[in-house]
Design a protein around this nucleic acid. Sequence first.
DNA 1: TTATCATTTTAGGATCTTCTGAAAGGATGC
DNA 2: GCATCCTTTCAGAAGATCCTAAAATGATAA
Lengths: 182, 182
Amino acid sequence: MPKPQSFDSARLLFIRRWGEMAASWGISRTMAEIHALLYLSTEPLCTDDVMEQIEVSRGSASTNLRQLVNWGLIHRVHRRNDRKEYFEAERDVWQMFETIIRERRRREVQPIMETLDRCLAMVDEEQRRSPQGTKAEVEAFRRRFTDIGEFFELTNTLLNLMNKAGRTGLRPLATKLARLMG
Amino acid sequence: MPKPQSFDSARLLFIRRWGEMAASWGISRTMAEIHALLYLSTEPLCTDDVMEQIEVSRGSASTNLRQLVNWGLIHRVHRRNDRKEYFEAERDVWQMFETIIRERRRREVQPIMETLDRCLAMVDEEQRRSPQGTKAEVEAFRRRFTDIGEFFELTNTLLNLMNKAGRTGLRPLATKLARLMG
DNA sequence: TTATCATTTTAGGATCTTCTGAAAGGATGC
DNA sequence: GCATCCTTTCAGAAGATCCTAAAATGATAA
């Protein structure tokens, strides 16, 4: 097995960039760096390993590790005769992104979908109480909301299909699709 | 046409939530709120309208509007005998998301893809200079990078297909897909 | 040219996020 | 029960982001 420190140039570059990318997607840089570290590691790491390699405090390491566990991107690992907790990343990239997509959907897409429904209800209610504009105008306004809602629903459907297809099924699927659409 | 202020409860709710969602995706809340305002507006708005409705300073309105123009999510509109500039949002939701996806890909996905290539090159270089580990081990380490790269490539392909399918083609596509996969 | 009007830039400040270091909490073995 | 080891929590600090207000810039018309 390669020593923990080998291939360091590649390791460090990837960790840095993974963190930068995450930061621009609204995910804490440190959390992503820790995730990258664990993803590349050949064996589970403990809090002290993370502190040393990412250069963060114990508090920060603990908090970020817990968040990663909550996301489901890493798992706790216990060893016999060792009080320490170790952490291991999900290695199946497909599984990894499925997790990310599921979490973001739950946290961020769901609320906006609910809001769209409420907006439509509000439009109808306001219209019922004190009619304004022509029928066509109101319909056009409603459409602003339904259009976005439909887009999200379609995206949902496609993501579900992608998940179903999974790692092995996806490439043939893409080929099939490409053919379907000429 | 509905008066600018009508359906305010729905309008305000949507603007607020759109801003919140964006914030958790690494996009400035104010920028997203302005975008939502313009998206819902039936006519182009000027800087002063934005200042008034979103309650931000002139500087902030100016900066955020310019960013939205850079993203390609809104367009400048000029009126005869009026020095002011007006802004209008892209209304085709499909087009809108295509724009967002293209921009994010360019800004954030491209760099990580390049990094993955560089990481692979580094592994090979380090291996050439001072061989370490067995062949299988090195290959396993390389795989960490190629796996992610392949995922991004597949996602790219699918997004391209989605764009090609566009607004009208997407729903039949989804149906067809669902059938393909049982 | 000068006055007027609109937009952009900038310095400084407010706010929000995330980190640190230390204390508190919890589990295990003696 | 007590000491040890590890994890979590938390108050304060550091840093990043974003906003404001005002000055600078640019453009148009008289």
